[in-house]
Computed example of a mutant assay.
Amino acid sequence: MLATYIENCLAKASIWALANLGKYAIIATNTYLIKKIGSTLSVKYNYSAIQVAVVGCGNWGKNLIRVYHELGALHAVCDASPQKMAQFEESLRIRACSFDELLNSAIDAIVIATPSVTHFELARKALLAKKHVYIEKPITHHPEQILQLQELAAEHNLRLMVGHLLQYHPAFLKLKALNAEGVLGQLQSIHATRLNFGKFPTEQNVLWDYAPHDISMVLGLMQELPTKVFASKENPLSHTTADTTTIHLHFADNKKARVISSWVHPFKEQKLIVTGSKAIVMLDDTQPWEHKLTLLNYPCAWNDGLPQPFQVEKNPIPLLPAEPLKNECEHFLQAILTQSEPLTGAAEALNVTTVLAAAIQSIASEQIITLKEKQQRTAIPEGIYA
Rank of each mutant, 00 (worst) to 15 (best):
60 W>S: 13
338 T>Q: 09
96 A>G: 08
122 L>P: 01
90 E>Q: 15
369 I>K: 05
258 R>M: 15
325 L>P: 01
137 K>R: 06
36 K>Y: 08
125 K>H: 09
223 Q>F: 04
321 P>N: 12
91 S>M: 14
116 S>R: 00
42 S>W: 10
255 K>C: 13
150 Q>E: 09
323 E>Q: 10
369 I>L: 07
368 I>S: 11
273 I>A: 13
10 L>N: 12
305 G>Q: 10
113 A>N: 06
59 N>R: 06
53 A>H: 06
242 A>P: 02
348 E>I: 03
270 Q>I: 06
3 A>C: 11
176 K>D: 08
379 A>V: 01
10 L>T: 11
195 L>Y: 10
47 Y>S: 04
176 K>G: 01
108 D>F: 13
148 Q>K: 06
8 N>T: 09
180 A>N: 13
58 G>K: 06
180 A>Y: 02
265 H>N: 12
361 Q>L: 13
254 N>T: 13
382 E>N: 09
26 I>F: 14
306 L>M: 11
355 V>G: 01
294 T>D: 11
264 V>G: 07
362 S>C: 13
120 F>D: 00
274 V>E: 03
81 S>C: 07
19 A>M: 09
372 K>T: 13
54 V>T: 02
258 R>A: 13
274 V>G: 05
247 I>F: 14
233 K>G: 11
24 Y>L: 15
250 H>Q: 15
256 K>M: 15
194 R>A: 07
175 L>F: 01
33 L>V: 00
268 K>A: 00
84 K>P: 00
99 F>Y: 10
57 C>Y: 03
360 I>F: 14
176 K>L: 14
37 I>Q: 12
100 D>I: 04
46 N>Y: 10
298 Y>M: 04
115 P>N: 03
190 I>R: 02
4 T>Q: 14
374 K>W: 13
17 A>T: 06
292 K>D: 02
134 Y>R: 07
360 I>M: 15
314 K>N: 14
37 I>C: 15
140 T>D: 11
261 S>P: 05
179 N>V: 07
91 S>T: 15
116 S>Y: 00
221 L>S: 01
139 I>T: 05
20 N>Q: 07
203 E>T: 10
48 S>W: 08
227 T>N: 15
380 I>F: 03
346 A>C: 04
372 K>A: 13
232 S>Q: 15
355 V>T: 04
81 S>T: 10
